[in-house]
């Protein structure tokens, strides 16, 4: 078990992300709504840098009670990051692939201690 120091929590902008290296492994660390999340920066599709893409909310279809289509909108809460190679989307808070929840990025625990942020790696 290895703790990787990412930096001071206060230096980490909410909505921001950093890519850190642990040996050959790249890890994307996100801060979103005050919490930290970390995933391997390796898309399940073709190995792209999944954590380096845009952070986008889920697009949703809005239907009327009679099931007719009204419009589309962005979710207020379901946020994704998008692999910049091909567009595979991942839920920022879980690492699940949006198109197929059976597929997930490797997740790392993140701890805050004494105002500093650490990733727990093997």
């Amino acid at each position: 078990m290895t703790e990787i120091l990412i930096g001071k929590a206060a230096s980490f902008e909410d909505g921001g992300r950093r890519i850190v290296f642990h040996g050959d492994v790249e890890i994307g660390v996100f801060r979103w709504e005050g919490k930290f999340y970390a995933y391997e920066n390796l898309c399940v599709h073709q190995g792209g840098p999944a954590c380096e893409g845009l952070i986008m909310h889920q697009v949703e279809d809005v239907l009327a009670p009679d099931r007719t289509f009204i419009r589309q909108t962005f979710s207020e809460s379901d946020v994704h990051f998008v692999c910049p190679w091909h567009g595979y989307e991942y839920r920022l808070t879980t690492g699940e692939c949006v198109g197929d929840r059976r597929l997930k990025l490797r997740r790392y625990d993140v701890v805050e201690r004494g105002g500093e942020v650490f990733i727990i790696a093997e």
Partner: peptide, 20 residues
């Protein structure tokens, strides 16, 4: 980006985006 957010990017290099 979604919900009126924006992301600022200053540089781009094919060799970096294709390092994997």
């Amino acid at each position: 980006l979604s919900n009126h957010r924006r992301m600022s990017v200053d540089e781009f290099d094919t060799r970096i985006t294709l390092s994997h």
